[in-house]
């Protein structure tokens, strides 16, 4: 009897709160494709620019890369024309990005579509120490990492922290191979403003959960020790040499904006009630990003006790 009552009650509630979806066609209004330019450029690296068109959902789908665009990189009085290569990117070997310099990227396609963005390339910082550690009382499932570095006092710096695990299988000198995948760093360090804590909250109070960028406004010009951790459950093998690769890059303000909008977009799309988010773009009338970074790739070999 109890069960019948409960089932009846829940049935009414189910009818009451069942979410229905109805389908409608995309509005007929014409929507023009726009240029989409993607270029994340590193110091001392060649410039690679990816140029595509956006696909309006109500229009003809456009696929593939634009090969016939005119792409120019300007720095001071120097101008470099980028060529389309086999990797579907516009690139040039004539110039490599230099820290502290200003660059402009200009894209023109068929004299119809035009895009323009400016960027200042950040300087690298010197990493003084990078290592893993564990303290007594730390939860079993975590492996802590510390990075000590000296911030640049002369400018506002922005940083990004990415990480991956690299497994090296050695089956004889001629048969060594690697396997690498990205992992999620977590941190309670105040610089991350609690975006990198593990949280399973139903309603995300913070749309920036998962953001890996930070600014030096708390420690500008000082030596800083940054602590974060990774989950040990990913480090499961004894049959391979495992390295933790930390990408601790200095990034530009445009990069900082872009990363945060990227995180916010991905968080908001899970929450249909939330207002729609667009990616940050420094191309004023088109989509895309032209942003620079200075890479610091730190390889930390993991010890046996680091694995779970």
């Amino acid at each position: 009897m109890k069960l019948i009552y409960y089932i009846s009650y829940l049935s009414i509630l189910f009818v009451a709160f069942i979410a229905c979806e109805t389908e409608h066609n995309i509005p007929k209004e014409h929507s023009e494709p726009k240029l989409v330019i993607n270029s994340l450029v590193g110091v001392d690296s060649t410039v690679n620019v990816n140029v595509t068109y956006s696909n309006p959902l109500n229009g003809q789908p456009y696929s593939g890369f634009i090969k016939d665009a005119e792409v120019k990189l300007v720095s001071g009085t120097s101008e470099y024309r980028l060529q389309f290569n086999d990797n579907n990117l516009f690139t040039t070997n004539e110039v490599k990005m230099e820290g502290g310099r200003d660059y402009s990227l200009i894209v023109l396609h068929k004299n119809e579509q035009y895009a323009f963005a400016d960027e200042t390339v950040p300087h690298a910082v010197k990493v003084l120490e990078a290592d893993t550690f564990r303290n007594d009382g730390d939860p079993e499932r975590i492996l802590k990492v510390k990075i000590r570095f000296k911030d640049n006092a002369q400018m506002t710096d922005y940083y990004i922290l990415n990480a991956s695990l690299r497994f090296t299988y050695d089956e004889g000198a001629a048969n060594e191979y690697h396997y690498e995948y990205d992992i999620q760093p977590f941190s309670q360090d105040p610089v991350f403003e609690h975006h990198l804590i593990e949280s399973q909250a139903l309603i995300e109070k913070n749309l920036l959960a998962g953001s890996r960028v930070f600014s030096d406004y708390r420690f500008n010009g000082k030596e800083k020790e940054l602590n974060f951790y990774v989950l040990r459950e990913g480090i499961w093998t004894n049959s391979a040499k495992v390295d933790l690769i930390v990408f601790f890059n200095t990034i530009s303000k445009n990069y900082f904006h872009y990363e945060r909008s990227y995180v916010m977009y991905n968080n908001a799309k899970k929450l249909p009630f939330y207002k729609k988010v667009n990616l940050y773009s420094n191309f004023r009338t088109q989509f895309g990003i032209f942003a620079a970074y200075s890479a610091n790739r730190l390889v930390i070999p993991l010890k046996a006790e680091d694995k779970i």
């Binding site: 956006s54 990408f247 872009y258 989509f287 895309g288």
Partner: peptide, 25 residues
Amino acid sequence: TLQLQNIQAVNPHATSFPFSNLIRQ
């Protein structure tokens, strides 16, 4: 507000393959 344009965007977190899935704007 409807996001009716698909764009190819670069993933700022990726350490290897840089492009994300299509993103709606």
